[in-house]
Every structure is written in C-alpha cells, then in structure tokens.
C-alpha cells in the first residue's frame, strides 16, 4: 500500500466518521424530549404533549 492510498484511506475514514457522528446527532434529536412539544421550558415534566 503506497502513501497516496494510505492518505486517501484516512480521508475517507474521516469523512465516514464525520457523517456517522452527524447521523448519530440526528438520531439523538429523533428521540422524544422529556417535556412537551413546545419550547415552554417544561423538559422535566412527565407529560409529553403529542399531536
């Protein structure tokens, strides 16, 4: 494996890692909040308002 291939492999892995982290972030935001659907500051409330 020559130097160019190693560098390209690292770049591709970094890109995959970045996209993976981004997707993980999105998945995290997919999970429902503890509070209601609106930004009323009631995250700790057990009731989650659903449509």
């Amino acid at each position: 494996m020559d130097m160019q291939t190693i560098i390209v492999s690292v770049i591709i892995l970094a890109a995959l890692l970045y996209v993976g982290i981004q997707i993980a972030g999105k998945v995290k935001s997919f999970t429902p909040k503890g509070g209601c659907g609106s930004d009323c500051g009631c995250e700790s409330s057990p009731k989650a308002s659903k449509f």
Binding site: I23, K26, S29, F30, K33, G37
Partner: peptide, 12 residues
C-alpha cells in the same frame, strides 16, 4: 434529513 429530524423533535 435535518428537516426530518426537526419534525420528529417538534411533533414528538
């Protein structure tokens, strides 16, 4: 995908 994420969050 970002819009999908925010819709999921806002609609719960």
């Amino acid at each position: 995908i970002s819009t999908v994420a925010v819709v999921r969050r806002e609609t719960n």
